[in-house]
Nucleic acid binder design. Structure first.
Lengths: 350, 350
DNA sequence: ATGAAAGCGCTAACAT
DNA sequence: ATGTTAGCGCTTTCAT
C-alpha cells in the first residue's frame, strides 16, 4: 500500500513537511489545524507533503503547548474490595453493563478523535493517585461511573475544576453534570405492570442498598405498590450480580413460597433468579411473573424472555460523551444534566 | 486537607520547585526520577518543596523528551459489524470476559504507573486510524485482544515495531509474543470427562468458527472424542453469546433429542443453554451432562453449578502486562510466549 | 496570507 | 554531586 522507499527511522515532523512543501512550519501547522487563512494552492502543496512524508502530529508536543490532550478519563469508582486476599474482581468490569457504557462512549469519542483512558479508583490510595493525575491535566475531562452512593469522588472531582460528567445522579447534590435514567419511574412501571396483571403476593430482588440505583429501584417499587394497596413485599438483596440474584431468589422462595410475582432490579440478577424459579417447579409467568431491569441482551436470551424496564444505556453513555465534549469546548459553563425515561418492554416473563 | 493559601492558577513546574528549594531544575528532576546521585540533605529539601508546591510532573513535557508515554493501548479488534443500522454492540465489551482481562491488566499496570488507553478496531478506517496513532508513539506498547482469526492486525502491529502482546496465538504465525491457554487441552479434558462419565450421545455448542478459540475448542473436542470411539457428534454454533447458546441448545435438542451430554465452548453460552435444557424437561446432569469453558463467575451462579474448563483469565492478562512491560524495558528483545494450562473444575452439571 | 521566533515543561548531555 | 544548556515538536503571537 505505502511505498517504503526509505524506512523512516524517525517519524516525520512539522519541519520535515515544511521542507518538502517549501513553506514554513507555521503554515504547515495552519493546514494541519484547518486554519482558514491559507492559500488554497499552498494548502494543496502542504497536504501532498503531509501525505508523502506520512506525517502525523506528535501529541505530546502539541499537548505541551495547547494544554489539551484530546483524551478523557473513564473513571470507574468501586467500593474497596474487602478481603485483600480476594483477587481483583472488579464487579463493574465484569458486568456487561460496563461494556455497553464503553460502547456508547466510544461511539461519540472516536469520531471526535478523543482517546479514552481507563482508570480505577477503589481505595484511598488509588483515589489520590487518580486525582493528582487529573489535576496535572493529563486528560481534558472525565466520565465517572460510580458504584456506591457515598463515593467522595464527585466532590473531589468538582474541586479539580475539570470538566466532568457523572453516570447517575450522585447522592450528595453536586454541581456536576450527570446523565441518568429515571430509576424511580422505571420501578414504578414494573410495579404498575405487576399490579395490572393481578399479582398481589409480590417479592423483589434488590441491588445493593449502598448504591443509588439499588436504593431508588427498591423504594420506587415499594411506593408504587403501596399505591396499589400492596404492602407486604418480601425483599432480598442480590448485589447486582448473577449469583447474587440466584441466592436472593432462593431466599425469597423460602420466605414466601406462595409468591406470584417478583421484580428483579437488574436483568443480570434476573438471569440468576429465573433458573432457581424453574427448578423450584414454578412456571414463569404462570405461577410467578418476573420483571427485570435494564433490558440488557440477557433479557432476550432468557427463557422465557424477560419483561423488563428498558434503560437506553448506550444512548445515555453517548450523551455523557457529548455533554463532556461540550463542556471541554467551553469551560466554566456546566451543561444541564439530562434524565432519560425508561420504558417497559413486554416479553414473556410477565 | 491541603492548605489553599494561594489558589494555584498555574500548576507548579520544575522551575517553581527549584526556586522554592533553592536548587537547579536538574536537581529537582533527578529527585523526581529517583536518581541516586543526589545529596540526601538536598533531596529532603527538594522533596519538601515538591510537597509545598504540590508539584506533579507534566507528562506531555516529559514524554516529548523521553519519547516514552507511560501508557499502553488495549486494542480490541472485532470483526466489522455487518448491518450499519445496528447500534454499537461490541460483543467484546459486553462479554464479561473482557472485564476480567481489564482487571488482570490493571493489577500490574497500575502499580507500575502505566495508563491504559482503550482503543477499538472494527473496520478498515478505524484500523488505519489506530495504526497511525500507534506509529506516532502515543503509547509505549499494545495489548491486542483480537476476536477473529483472520485479523490483519497482528501483522500490521508487528510492522510498527512497537512492543506488543497478543491475547491468544494468532492464526498466522507471528513473531509477536502471545499469552494463551491451551485450548485444545481444555477441550480434551471436557471430552475425557464426558467419556469417563459414560456419555456417548454427545453434542457441542461451539464458538464462531472464525475465531481461533472457537475452532480449536471444537476440533480438540472432536478429536478427543474420536479417541474414545465416539464419532457422531452433533454441533451447533452459539457465537460465544448468551442468547446464541440458548438457540444452539434448542437446535441440538431438535437434532438429537436423545442427547446425554453437551460440551458448551463458553460458560456464557452454557448460561443460555442450561435453562433451555431444563425447560425441555431434561435433568442436568441426570439426563444431560453439561461441561462449560472458562470458569467465569457465571459458572458458579448457574443452577446447577457448572462443571467447566478453567482458564485463569486474570492471571493470563496480568502475565500479558508483565511481558509487555519487559519488552518496553528492553526493546528489540521479544519475550517468549507463554501458554497456560487449563484445568477441569468439577461442579454439579457433569 | 505567510514567516520568524519564542516558548510550553521537561530530560540529558556536558561541564564543573 | 550539582548546575548549565540545548533541545524534544508543536502552536502562536507578532511582524511583514
Amino acid at each position: 500500500m505505502t511505498a517504503d522507499v526509505s524506512p523512516p527511522a524517525r517519524p516525520a515532523t512539522l519541519e520535515d513537511v515544511a521542507a518538502v512543501a517549501g513553506v514554513s512550519r507555521a503554515t504547515v501547522s495552519r493546514v494541519i489545524n484547518g486554519a482558514t487563512t491559507v492559500d488554497p494552492a499552498l494548502r494543496r502543496v502542504v497536504e501532498e507533503a503531509v501525505a508523502t512524508t506520512g506525517y502525523v502530529p506528535n501529541r505530546a508536543a502539541r499537548s505541551l503547548v495547547t494544554r489539551r490532550t484530546d483524551s478523557i478519563a473513564l473513571v470507574v469508582s468501586e467500593r474497596e474490595r474487602r478481603p485483600v486476599s480476594e483477587p481483583f474482581i472488579g464487579r463493574m468490569f465484569s458486568d456487561p453493563h460496563f461494556g455497553r457504557v464503553v460502547g456508547g462512549l466510544m461511539d461519540v469519542l472516536r469520531p471526535a478523535g478523543i482517546q479514552m483512558v481507563l482508570m480505577l479508583a477503589d481505595d484511598e490510595a488509588s483515589r489520590n493517585q487518580l486525582l493528582s493525575y487529573l489535576r496535572q491535566g493529563h486528560v481534558d475531562g472525565v466520565v465517572l461511573i460510580s458504584s456506591h452512593a457515598d463515593d467522595p469522588l464527585p466532590g473531589l472531582l468538582h474541586d479539580t475544576r475539570l470538566p466532568a460528567v457523572l453516570a447517575g445522579r450522585p447522592r450528595k447534590p453536586s454541581p456536576l453534570t450527570y446523565v441518568e435514567a429515571d430509576q424511580r419511574a422505571g420501578a414504578q412501571m414494573a410495579a404498575d405492570h405487576l399490579a395490572a396483571l393481578g399479582r398481589r403476593r409480590i417479592g423483589t430482588i434488590t441491588g445493593p442498598q449502598d448504591m443509588p440505583a439499588g436504593q431508588v429501584r427498591l423504594t420506587g417499587f415499594l411506593d408504587a405498590l403501596e399505591q396499589h394497596g400492596i404492602g407486604d413485599v418480601a425483599t432480598a438483596e442480590g448485589g447486582f450480580t448473577h449469583s447474587g440474584g440466584a441466592s436472593a431468589m432462593r431466599q425469597l422462595l423460602r420466605e414466601r413460597p406462595d409468591l406470584d410475582a417478583v421484580f428483579v432490579a437488574s436483568d443480570l440478577m434476573a438471569l440468576g433468579a429465573l433458573p432457581v424459579l424453574l427448578r423450584a417447579g414454578r412456571d414463569v409467568p404462570g405461577d410467578v411473573a418476573v420483571v427485570g431491569f435494564d433490558d440488557s441482551n440477557a433479557a432476550v436470551a432468557c427463557d422465557p424472555p424477560l419483561t423488563t424496564v428498558r434503560q437506553p444505556v448506550e444512548e445515555m453513555a453517548s450523551e455523557m460523551a457529548r455533554l463532556l465534549l461540550k463542556q471541554i469546548g467551553r469551560p466554566g459553563l456546566p451543561e444541564p444534566s439530562v434524565v432519560f425515561h425508561p420504558t417497559l418492554v413486554r416479553r414473556e416473563s410477565a
